[in-house]
Design a protein around this nucleic acid. Structure first.
Length: 243
DNA sequence: GCGACAG
DNA sequence: ATCTTGTCGC
């Protein structure tokens, strides 16, 4: 897997937007399920209470059994503020660090958040996909942009997420009568394919096993890190506060 | 102008 | 995102 070194955090919000505009043309919005599909990676991050430190985690699941075969984590100091639409700039550094520690090469990356269903059609899932060139899609827990009709109440029911007259994602009910999740293409995979995979990854709970396991891994890594008093050896990316 | 706003 | 345990309900 390609692992482009994450460029220094943008110095300004405008620079970050420019970076997204520069990379957006590289996104591939179509694609069948990866073949072979053996290792599926789940990615998530956990923040310290003051959001000064972030723990990124990647769990690799066996595509057949959905059991975790490997976990990699990385701690970083946070060098970019949370700005809706620019989430990737604060989470990707830690996630790339964690991906770099993997022994298994993922055939698919499942992100926490959005891909094309983004103000500039370049959410975290697209960004990570372009940087790694691995098929990617995002699964978000809450609405961000777009409008949609309430999907049916059965597991597997879904409806289109629409914005500006185009379908940018899908609202998917992974469990009967349970609040749906939002699926959107990240890179090299079609929305229908991503939706099908997302459903497969959530056979028992509302969220895919990929996000459940990586969420837990990131929290453990953060807790362990804070306890170990890593306040000294934290990987600090080139500091570039915005505003 | 005002409010909303992935994690 | 994070602060947070038990508890009501199927």
């Amino acid at each position: 897997m390609k692992l482009e070194p994450f460029p220094a955090a943008p110095a300004t919000e405008a620079d970050a937007v420019a970076e997204q505009d520069r990379l957006r043309p590289l996104v591939q919005t179509q694609g069948a399920a990866p073949e072979p599909l053996r290792w599926i990676a789940g990615l998530d991050v956990a923040y310290a209470v003051d959001e000064s430190c972030v723990a990124g985690a990647v769990t690799v699941l066996d595509a057949e059994t959905l059991t975790v075969v490997e976990t990699a984590t990385a701690l970083r100091s946070v060098d970019f503020p949370y700005i809706p639409g620019l989430l990737a700039f604060r989470e990707i550094p830690a996630l790339l660090d964690a991906l770099g520690k993997l022994i298994h090469v993922p055939d698919l990356l499942v992100c926490d958040g959005y891909g094309l269903a983004h103000p500039r059609r370049f959410g975290l899932a697209c960004h990570l996909g372009v940087l790694t060139d691995v098929p990617t899609f995002g699964v978000a827990k809450t609405a961000f942009i777009g409008t949609f009709d309430e999907p049916g109440q059965a597991r597997g029911d879904s409806s289109d997420l629409v914005d500006g007259g185009e379908v940018i994602g899908r609202v998917l009910r992974t469990q009967p009568k349970i609040k749906p999740v939002f699926v959107s293409t990240g890179h090299r995979i079609a929305l229908d394919v991503a939706t099908g995979l997302a459903l497969r990854l959530a056979p028992e709970y509302r969220l895919p096993e990929t996000t459940r396991t990586s969420d837990q891994a990131s929290r453990r890594a953060l807790a362990a890190g804070l306890a170990t008093g890593l306040a000294t050896g934290l990987v600090t990316g080139p500091a570039h506060p915005v505003n």
